[in-house]
Design a protein around this nucleic acid. Sequence first.
DNA 1: CGTCTATTTGAATGTACTCAAAAGCGGTGG
DNA 2: CCACCGCTTTTGAGTACATTCAAATAGACG
Lengths: 195, 195
Amino acid sequence: MDTALIISNISQQVQAGTETMDFFVSLLEPKSIAKKEYLVRTGDICRYDYFINKGCVKVCYTDKKGVECIVKFAIENWWVVDLESFLHHTPSFYYIQAVEDTDLFQLSKCNYDLLHRKYPVFQQFSNDRWQKGFIALQQRIIQNLSLTAEEKYKHFREKYPSLEQRIPQKLTAAYVGVTPEFLSVLRRRWATAIS
Amino acid sequence: MDTALIISNISQQVQAGTETMDFFVSLLEPKSIAKKEYLVRTGDICRYDYFINKGCVKVCYTDKKGVECIVKFAIENWWVVDLESFLHHTPSFYYIQAVEDTDLFQLSKCNYDLLHRKYPVFQQFSNDRWQKGFIALQQRIIQNLSLTAEEKYKHFREKYPSLEQRIPQKLTAAYVGVTPEFLSVLRRRWATAIS
DNA sequence: CGTCTATTTGAATGTACTCAAAAGCGGTGG
DNA sequence: CCACCGCTTTTGAGTACATTCAAATAGACG
């Protein structure tokens, strides 16, 4: 599998020498999964950190009423992991499932730790990553606190440009936090408002 | 001001020698602010990382309708900062204001960077901190996506035990994301349900 | 083509909000 | 010490936004 994307992903964040990058790449395991296959199931321990090279996965949980809620999508050039499970070896609250046929690289916890010990530059990379993730999540909280469903829907389209075309509406609804029926109504309103 | 609490806070996360800790402590600036005073105003650049030794501050923003929304409270033994503003020197979206008379330590961005460069153990400390923060925020998102106002209110009481006694109900409502009127109704229902 | 799932539509319902008014409570000054 | 003022909390009526449930329609895939 082509490592160009993941190398560019790292290089955009930190300065790492060829040797360091070669070592990093040697730790990666390429993997391909079909649509609807799972990377992690609820209750599993999340043993890998994943980088999506092509395709799309969703991070979800099932709420008390049995409804699927989507915490995030990961598409090309995104990293995804259940952090809590990965760090502490605890059963995952989430499941991670492919929305499309997906090519990815996985990095085991063991290699992840090795990498961080051996090359402090990856400490820094991860630090940046969690900081950015933290900022992004904070923004999502704000949206949930003070926006209407329609506004949240618009934000979704800005955050994941063109993803809407790739996935069923049902999944958009599960991410935005509304019922599929109501999302349908919103879209109708939006359409008639334009014309 | 007593440094016992902040030293124990660091020590619980990482192993740091006496010398390291002494250096750390030497970078801290104690500060006391009265109730209603600001640490950061919207549009300011957040130039310090704050550790609350005593008292309580709130991190807020004003939404489009002019309503105050509370992103988090920081009480004794909590760190608080507007991460995005602090890291990138950008105007803060939030304001941070004292809810009670508050004693704190502040660490400037400059000293923060110095500390991280000089002692990698603080790299690790911060890494842990953002990872934990990330996990906590993810849980809050879940709550907003799939819980009713009543359930969110219960979560607030679990997350900040006894804080409810210290602050006006109005602030609880602003954190939970409901109107003060509706929180009042919830409390009435809760009370009558018990008896 | 037939089956299964996704989407649309509409009616009835529920949850939380808005607005307005009254009651409670705390601090301040006379 | 009490009276008053301002702010918080309570209460209720009317409303808006989003859900539930049910049924019809459209699309996808074998």
